[in-house]
Simulated assay, not measured.
Amino acid sequence: MKGGSGGGMSGSSISIINFVRARIENIKQQLEGVLPTTGNMTMIGEGGKSN
């Protein structure tokens, strides 16, 4: 995303498409009971970034 203010995507090492795909998979696993719905931290730090 170029220009504008509040661009949280600039400098991100993961594309929005890949993030959405990973998020959909995460939600599917929660609905199937594979992952817990509370305290689920699997989406934190996607793409090797943290804090």
Rank of each mutant, 00 (worst) to 15 (best):
G6H: 09
G4R: 01
N40W: 02
K28F: 07
G7L: 06
K49I: 11
S13A: 08
T42K: 07
K49P: 07
R23E: 15
M1V: 08
G11N: 04
S12R: 04
K2L: 08
S50E: 04
S13D: 01
M1T: 01
G11E: 01
N51P: 06
Q29W: 05
K28Q: 12
N18C: 15
N18M: 14
I14H: 00
V20M: 13
M1F: 01
G47F: 00
S13L: 04
E32I: 02
T38F: 09
N51G: 15
S15L: 05
I14L: 09
G11K: 02
N40I: 06
G33W: 03
I14K: 01
N51S: 15
F19R: 08
E46D: 08
V34P: 05
S13W: 00
V20H: 07
N51I: 11
E32R: 02
G48S: 04
N26L: 08
K49H: 13
N40Y: 02
I14T: 02
T42D: 14
R23F: 15
P36L: 08
I44M: 12
I17M: 08
G4W: 01
S12T: 07
N40M: 06
G11C: 07
I16R: 13
V20S: 13
L35T: 06
S12G: 12
G47S: 00
G33D: 03
E32L: 10
E32T: 02
R23W: 14
M43D: 03
G45E: 08
N51W: 05
G39C: 05
I27R: 07
I17W: 06
I16W: 11
V34Y: 05
I17R: 11
M41A: 04
I17E: 12
L31M: 14
N18A: 15
V34M: 10
A22R: 06
G33Q: 01
I17Y: 08
K28L: 10
I14D: 02
R21H: 06
Q30M: 15
N40T: 06
G48Q: 00
T37L: 15
I27K: 07
I44V: 15
T37W: 07
L31A: 14
N40C: 12
M43G: 07
G11H: 02
I14P: 00
K2M: 04
I44S: 14
L31E: 11
I17D: 11
N51Y: 10
Q30W: 01
L31N: 12
S10G: 14
G3W: 04
M9P: 00
G39K: 02
